[in-house]
Nucleic acid binder design. Sequence first.
DNA 1: TGCCAGGCCCTCTTTAGGGCCTT
Length: 207
Amino acid sequence: MGNYSVVVLDFETTGLSPQYGDRAIEIGAVLVENNEIVDRFQSLMNPGMKVSSFIEEYTGITNRMLDSSPSITEVMHEFTRFMAQHHLVAHNAGFDSRFLDAELQRINQQRCQEFACSLLISRRVYPELTSHSLESLVRSKNLKTDGVHHRALADAEMTAHLWVNIVNDIKAEYGFKQVPFDLLKRLSKVSKSLAPTFLRRAAENQE
DNA sequence: TGCCAGGCCCTCTTTAGGGCCTT
């Protein structure tokens, strides 16, 4: 049983690149302790710009919904209290960390928490799968879902279930008593072909 | 005004290109 907690988060945004002016429009996050979701955070946020029809269709989040939503500043201040000092997890964390860092910078704050990526880790733990998109993983691993996709809280919850599934599968296959966050961080940087050896050796050397 | 992502990972690789993954 992991003795640490993680916050699994997901952003919906106006596009793919905060460097080119894209902004967050929704954040969803769950706090996972001992393989259980024990708290949730969700909010739309008004980006102060119109989102494209593609984004309206992709997420189901409309300009009308965003018009009456709180500001990004307000929501991000609340979210910093929710994430506190917990380790962070996201599916394709490079994307979410870029938006998180960009929005934090706009409110003069900085992230100090470590980020782990469930996409990179699942590619190493489930190399037999041909697709590692969140939707495919939910299907192939029979993860709990309410059928909603591309909304922040629903995606964060599915990612949390994926995270727990990964931890449990590594325990079962390699005989870990617990799977530290740092081990999964390091696993995500090991080459795919060396991942099984890395895990086997780590299991042999655990305290 | 309009330009328009970034990083991983494989391979017919490393003097590179293209698919995947996120919205």
